[in-house]
Amino acid sequence: MAVEHDPSHSPRAYYGAELRRLRELAGLSQEALGQLVFCSGGYIGQMEVAVRKPQEDLSKRLDEALKTDGHFLRVYQMVRKASRYPDFFADAAELQASAQSISEFGPLLVPGLLQTPDYARAVFESADPLRKAADAEALVAARVARSEILDRANAPLYWAVLDESVLRRPVGGSAVMFGQLRHLAELVLSRKALIQVVPFSAGAHALMEGSLCLMTFEEAPPVAYVEGPYSGQLVDNPSTVAECALAYDLVRAAALSPKVSLALIDSAAEDYANAPDREVA
């Protein structure tokens, strides 16, 4: 069976459309097909609407169950090649592009969707000082391109909670931080993002262990994404996602109001503007 890719679809959306078409052609429900390939019917449904990224082993099992002569494995290779992101983050990045709402907690860094090019560059350079400049710029471009979803007419509702340490740590130096914090303020004032800050005075709070991203969708259940150094995990178990959502609500409750948070962001930006190691144009 030849792969006839519709250029109007992303490879991932094409995979999902083909999965639904061939499943229905075989007269199988999502649950019935899931039993044949050892996954849940919900997972099949999420792949059909391009919420979940297909996997190599599952693609092979789909070809066997639906007798499609390697079709899904070939389309899977297209999906894999199309991603601009590390394997551990690719699923989350693509899900953010189709989410109705995105809620993130940043304990150490400004979340990727909110980063300026200079801030992102400083993050990548500090992570690997020996990285080639061209490779670093490619990573910066990919990260900045993701932020375009906040400019869409159908942009997701975006809500971020940041620990105050995110504002105080001079990533890239005072000039970079001044630009980054001004960017955060502009996103808030243009109503593209809601941002709250958990102040140092709040003491211990939920989610001190790490970052969290919660996503909701129009046609699929919510998911959570947690990340560590060079690793990440997409969580779709309903009870675990509910626990993550509760933790996010708790950290949001510990944060300053959006209005007071904006004032703190502006104050921190002013501190960087007046730092002795830089002048703000």
Rank of each mutant, 00 (worst) to 15 (best):
A204H: 03
V75K: 06
Y119E: 03
P54Y: 11
V251E: 15
F72V: 02
P156I: 09
A92R: 11
D63F: 07
A26Q: 10
H9S: 05
P107C: 08
E279I: 15
L58R: 10
L187Q: 01
K60E: 12
L246C: 00
V49Q: 09
E18H: 07
E227M: 00
A138F: 06
A254W: 12
L22V: 02
F200Q: 01
Q100G: 05
S101R: 03
E209H: 09
S10T: 10
T116R: 10
Y248R: 12
A97R: 15
T216G: 09
V140C: 14
R80F: 00
A253L: 14
G172I: 04
L187N: 02
S257C: 15
S267R: 13
S98N: 01
G41N: 13
L214N: 12
V226E: 08
V280C: 11
D87N: 12
A224W: 11
S83C: 01
C213L: 05
H9N: 13
Q55T: 09
A263V: 09
A275E: 08
A141V: 02
A90S: 14
L66Q: 06
L130D: 11
L256E: 08
P222E: 13
Y272R: 02
P229R: 13
S211I: 01
V188D: 01
V3D: 09
G16E: 06
G232N: 02
A133N: 11
A32H: 06
M1T: 07
V79T: 13
M215I: 01
Y76N: 04
A17V: 07
A269G: 08
C244T: 05
E24V: 01
N237S: 14
S147T: 11
S201T: 00
A220C: 07
A32V: 00
G70M: 03
L162Q: 07
S231E: 14
S59Q: 04
R74H: 05
I102Y: 03
E227H: 03
V144P: 08
S8D: 13
A242G: 15
S59D: 05
A138V: 04
R21Q: 09
A134R: 11
R191A: 03
E148P: 02
V123C: 13
V79P: 06
P276I: 10
L262E: 07
T116M: 00
